[in-house]
Amino acid sequence: MEEIVRVNNLVKRYKDLIALDNFSFSIKKGEIFGLLGPNGSGKSTTINCILSLLTYDKGEVYLFGEKMNVNRNDIKKRIGLIGQNVAVFNELSVYENIDFFCGLYINDKATRRKYVEDALEFTGLNDYRKKSPKKLSGGLIRRLNIACGIAHKPELIIFDEPTVAVDPQSRNNILEGIKDLNKNGATVIYTSHYMEEVEEICSRILIMDKGHEICQGTADELKGQIKNTENVILNVKYIDESDLEGLKKIHHVYSVKYADKVLTIRFSGGKHNISHVLDYISEHSINYERIYSELPTLNDVFLEITGKELRD
């Protein structure tokens, strides 16, 4: 498979802070590559270095097999960026915005008109074409932001947290849209600190923290790397210290944590784990409101490797 992105030993410093520390990865054609990391882990910095928006201290970036730099307009032609922040002109209408940004790539008038129509159609903004972005709702303006980034039909599309501050319905729209783009042949880089999103759409995930790679692979591969296999969670108003110790003694349990009236019991292996917990609870007459069992998430992967939560 053709390699679309190759990043070698990228080092980026902001004065004293090392934002990227020998960071490397590569992306193959047709992938939806997820870059997952907590706030400030260096996702946007990585994207900006790839696009030569930022200079870096060390390392190389290859796009479509060629070395990228600021002046590579031939490479830039093939890329679309949907940044973390909405980047549209408030003074131009929805249509004019898409047309302007598409026009930076597509010179031919007829082609451009068709592409703009396609983008309007794709993002469902047909009814709003004459509107000013100022009058669009938060979800719609995000869609416009996407339309402006994809209208020229790029081969590599980079989404930097496109769903920040978006209502759940719009978010689903956006995620579906990204899947469609990928189906139509685009390679996608998707950064987020929402593990659910990344897990839902990405074919491969790289988890990063403090400019380092933590691990990478498909969601299942990542979860398979850790000892955690199941979590049993209870909503409990009160619990004794002695009971926490007691729960720990259940077979396969390796961690018991009680915080904010939520009791989390982590298992590594074992079957019928939830019934063992229930047995202990009824035996010790512990009052609980709800009990359920969960498979490990990417958050657990992150937690187990770094010792801290993905979300703060």
Partner: peptide, 15 residues
């Protein structure tokens, strides 16, 4: 690119 998000968009384009 250092002054606005629109500017960033313009700078990643092949203009």
């Amino acid at each position: 690119s250092s002054e606005s998000y629109e500017g960033m968009r313009i700078c990643v384009s092949p203009v």
